[in-house]
C-alpha cells in the first residue's frame, strides 16, 4: 500500500492508496488493514483505486466486504478512483457513498476542501467597515454590523446578530455553508453565487437561526434551523 500526500488549497491531505485488481481477495485487504492499524497513525484514510479492475461480477460484493472490514479496523475510506468499467458497473449505493462520505473525483477535488484549513475564531464585534478574512472557516462569537464583511474560503458561523455581507467559499468552494443564530444579512454569497437581500426577509428566517447552502444547481437556499 502506498502512502501519498496531495496538496489541496494549501492544506495537505494524506491518504493511503489501496489498489485493487481482479485477483484481490478480501483476506489480502484484511491483512493490509491490520498492518495499517499497527502503524497506529492518526491518519487512516484510504483512497481505493479500481483502475486495474476488469472482471466485474462481484465488484459490489467486494466493496461491501471492504466497507465492513474497514469498519472493523476503524479505517475511513475517503473515495474511490474509477476506471471506465468500474464506473459503469458499480452499484448506485456504492457509487455515491462509502461510509457516508460522498465519493469524490480526486482529479477535480482541488476545488473541494476535504481537510479544512485553520479556523479563525473572532470574539469581538465586527463593526461597520471592518473586514474579517480567513483561508478556512470563520466563527464569530459576537455580532456583525451592517456594512461589515466576513470573507472565508470555508464556512461561516455567527453566534450573534448577523448583518453585513457574508461571503463563504470565496475561492469557489461551493460546499461551504453559512450558519447564523440571528439572520439579518445585507448580502450572502457562497462559491461566487451571491444574493443581495434588499427586501424585508420572510418571517421564518428574519432574525432566526438559519443555514445557507448551495444546491446542485447552484441556487442559494436559506433554511431555518430548529
Amino acid at each position: 500500500m502506498l502512502s501519498n500526500t496531495i496538496k489541496l488549497n494549501q492544506a495537505s491531505f494524506e491518504y493511503y492508496l489501496l489498489q485493487i485488481n481482479s485477483q484481490t481477495k478480501i483476506e489480502d485487504i484484511k491483512s493490509k488493514f491490520k498492518s495499517l492499524k499497527k502503524l497506529d497513525k492518526k491518519n487512516n484514510t484510504i483512497v481505493l483505486s479500481l483502475n486495474d479492475v476488469f472482471v466485474l461480477n462481484d465488484l459490489n460484493k467486494m466493496l461491501d466486504s471492504i466497507k465492513s472490514t474497514g469498519n472493523e479496523y476503524g479505517i475511513n475510506i475517503h473515495s474511490i478512483l474509477h476506471n471506465k468499467y468500474s464506473e459503469q458497473y458499480i452499484s448506485n449505493e456504492n457509487k455515491d457513498y462509502i461510509f457516508g462520505i460522498k465519493v469524490l473525483d480526486l482529479a477535480s477535488s482541488t476545488k473541494l476542501n476535504p481537510v479544512s484549513n485553520k479556523t479563525l475564531i473572532y470574539d469581538d464585534p465586527v463593526r461597520s467597515g471592518m473586514r474579517v478574512e480567513n483561508d478556512g472557516d470563520i466563527i464569530v462569537t459576537s455580532f456583525v454590523s451592517d456594512n461589515a464583511e466576513i470573507v472565508a474560503t470555508g464556512s461561516i458561523h455567527i453566534y450573534g446578530e448577523a448583518k453585513g455581507r457574508l461571503i463563504a467559499g470565496s475561492n469557489g468552494n461551493k460546499e461551504a455553508r453559512i450558519f447564523t443564530t440571528s439572520f439579518n444579512a445585507e448580502l450572502i454569497a457562497i462559491g461566487g453565487i451571491f444574493r443581495a437581500l434588499e427586501n424585508k426577509l420572510l418571517d421564518n428566517i428574519n432574525h432566526k437561526m438559519v443555514q445557507i447552502h448551495l444546491d446542485e444547481k447552484s441556487r442559494l437556499h436559506i433554511k431555518p434551523l430548529n
Binding site: P125, R127, S128, G129, M130, D146, A148
Partner: peptide
C-alpha cells in the same frame, strides 16, 4: 449611528 459604528471598529483595531 452607522458612522459611529465605523469609528468603534477603528477604536478596536
Amino acid at each position: 449611528v452607522r458612522d459611529s459604528d465605523r469609528i468603534l471598529g477603528l477604536l478596536a483595531s
